[in-house]
């Protein structure tokens, strides 16, 4: 059984159908990279996996359990599936430590005594332990994004979603975030990324999914897809990003 099973998922915003029947499996330990032009539905698909968007048709199962939007299920789902956003979305009024420990303490994953140690542990994984008492506004974009990843890690998720996490960063800050993600990939975290970083997709991903007009147009390993695209749409996409 795949960790995430996406079956014929449809999603519309008003009259605009963004996902037109998407099916996809994500297996444990896989690094799945979703690529495609903007408007192809990549981010929407990602946000459907942890129910930030509600699907209009089809079904998504995470660890065999259907994703639903009633509160009890939602809380459990989101403790297993973390998401990192393009704009970091750190809480500006909380220190790095509190940003990280807020959810684990409130959801009972950690108690107040262990919380600081938990924050130190996850911050060490992203190389920012010395920033534990800083406020988000005092950090660079790259550091903020690494804290956002640490905040996610503190929930010990089984799956992490990355929604264009380097797109809002200055070019010189992209590398530090990608390096953290590479480390996580090496440690066996299951990851689904929407990204424009083709180098990262090529080197780290175990599977690449090319989305086009709300559908999974092609999927395969990086070498298959990049060396031997089957459809004219993927061919033109690859040549457009080179």
């Amino acid at each position: 059984m795949a960790l995430v099973e996406i079956r014929d998922v449809r999603k519309s915003f008003g009259a605009n159908e963004v996902l037109k029947g998407v099916s996809l499996d994500i297996n444990e330990g896989e690094i799945v990279t979703i690529i495609g032009r903007s408007g192809s539905g990549k981010s929407t698909l990602l946000r459907c996996i942890n129910a930030l968007e509600q699907v209009d048709g089809g079904e998504i199962r995470v660890e065999g359990k259907a994703v639903r939007t009633d509160m009890q299920d939602l809380r459990q789902l989101r403790q297993r599936v973390g998401i990192v956003f393009q704009a970091f979305n750190l809480f500006p009024h909380l220190t790095v430590e509190k940003n990280i420990t807020l959810a684990p303490v409130l959801t009972g994953k950690s108690n107040k005594q262990e919380a600081r140690q938990l924050a130190i542990d996850v911050l060490e994984r992203v190389g920012l332990a010395e920033k534990i008492d800083a406020y988000p506004e005092q950090l660079s974009g790259g550091q903020q994004q690494r804290v956002a990843i640490a905040r996610c890690l503190a929930m010990a998720p089984h799956l992490m979603l990355f929604d264009e996490v380097t797109s809002a960063l200055d070019p010189e800050l992209v590398g530090e975030v990608l390096k953290v993600m590479e480390d996580m990939a090496r440690q066996g975290m299951t990851m689904v990324l929407v990204t424009h970083e083709m180098g990262f997709a090529r080197d780290v991903a175990s599977k690449i999914v090319f989305m086009h007009e709300g559908r999974v147009w092609e999927q395969g390993t990086p070498s298959e897809l990049f060396a031997n695209p089957q459809t004219p749409e993927l061919k033109s996409f690859i040549s457009s990003i080179k």
Partner: peptide
């Protein structure tokens, strides 16, 4: 909205 989403995505009510 992104702040509310960030909280919700961490499993908060």
């Amino acid at each position: 909205r992104s702040q509310i989403e960030a909280g919700a995505s961490l499993g908060l009510s």
